[in-house]
Computed example of a mutant assay.
Amino acid sequence: MRSKLSRSILLSLLVVPAFAFAQEAVAPATTATATEAVAIGNKLVAAAPQDKAQIVFFRESKFVGGAIGFKVREGDAELGKLRSGKYFVATVEPGKHEYNVHGETKDVLSIEVEAGETYYVLGSLGMGIVAGRPNLSPSDEATFLSMSAKLKLAN
């Protein structure tokens, strides 16, 4: 009985480190695959024109706050409306831009863009007293791609 217990303990001491080593070997491959997905390119958004910049505004698909949409504006000009699970692309001149959204509160995002580049802006909805509080924050292509399966182009 004692020898069976000793063998079981010895075997478990050998298996646990081997399993941990195998997990470490798998982790870099998973990271490389995610990086390759970004490097392959974005099928939803074409490359930016050489003389202009483009900004992709997107909002994650969520049930909570899904009925609430908000308009993205630059000054008084409306660029598009962000609803849950939607995105739109704005082609703009290079330079500094300020985008705002209104709801229970106002949020302003200042961004400087360069010609031939694509930028990503994540729209979200925070909790408010009466209605949601829209928010715009800088994002990246990897975040956009991770949500892209559930995103649709806004009308």
Rank of each mutant, 00 (worst) to 15 (best):
R59F: 15
Y99Q: 03
A53V: 03
V16L: 15
K86C: 03
T31I: 00
P17C: 11
L109M: 13
G123D: 11
E117V: 02
L151G: 11
R83V: 13
A77D: 04
N42R: 01
R83S: 15
N155H: 12
T33W: 09
L44S: 07
A27V: 05
L125Y: 03
S8H: 05
A18D: 12
K4H: 13
A34F: 04
Q54G: 05
I129Q: 08
N155T: 05
V38S: 06
G116Q: 12
V64C: 10
A67C: 00
F144W: 01
E24L: 12
E93D: 12
V121D: 01
Q23S: 02
V64S: 09
A154L: 06
A142L: 03
V92W: 07
K150M: 08
A20Y: 00
Q54W: 05
K81W: 13
D107R: 09
G103L: 15
P49Q: 07
V108E: 14
G66N: 06
Y87M: 15
L10T: 15
L11I: 14
S61D: 06
T35M: 01
V45L: 11
T143D: 04
L10H: 14
G85C: 01
E60Y: 07
R83Y: 09
V26A: 15
I68V: 06
V92D: 09
K43V: 12
L109P: 03
E36V: 10
L122V: 05
A18E: 11
A77I: 08
A32M: 09
G75Q: 02
S8G: 11
A37V: 03
G123H: 08
L44C: 06
T91N: 10
T105I: 03
P17M: 14
V113T: 15
V45D: 10
D76L: 09
E74Y: 02
P49R: 06
L153A: 12
L10C: 06
G116R: 08
L44E: 05
Q23H: 00
K43M: 11
A77S: 01
S137N: 03
S146N: 03
E78N: 13
I68S: 08
